[in-house]
């Protein structure tokens, strides 16, 4: 589910202690860790409105790794 939403060249791992998920861009080497489990990420992906608990900077970072719903990324296209 999460895998379908990954940006090109990005792979991911969610840890067994449910502390979060890490992303790795195989081309640029960029690495990102978020304290969201797979399920929480899925919720974000299939949301129909903006989750206000997620900070704008986190959205920018995350959008480099996964394809977020359009209403998250529209405002930050230049990044």
């Amino acid at each position: 589910m999460l895998n379908d939403a990954l940006q090109d060249h990005v792979i991911t791992h969610s840890f067994s202690d449910e502390s979060g998920t890490v992303f790795f861009n195989q081309v640029t080497g960029e690495t990102l860790g978020v304290s969201l489990s797979k399920e929480q990420l899925a919720k974000l992906l299939f949301a129909t409105e903006i989750d206000t608990t997620v900070q704008p900077e986190e959205i920018v970072s995350l959008s480099r790794m996964i394809k977020l719903p359009l209403f998250y990324t529209e405002s930050s296209d230049e990044f």
Binding site: I11, H13, F15, S16, D17, S19, G20, T21, V22, F24, Q26, T28, G29, T31, G33, V34, S35
Partner: peptide, 29 residues
């Protein structure tokens, strides 16, 4: 540390992990 915290600190200290790519990432995970 939680595993996510541990991973991020671990990866910050990796020399060649960006070059060897997937193999490096999955080894650290």
């Amino acid at each position: 540390l939680t595993k996510t915290q541990g991973f991020m600190q671990f990866a910050t200290n990796a020399f060649n992990y960006g070059v060897i790519g997937t193999q490096g990432f999955s080894t650290l995970c």
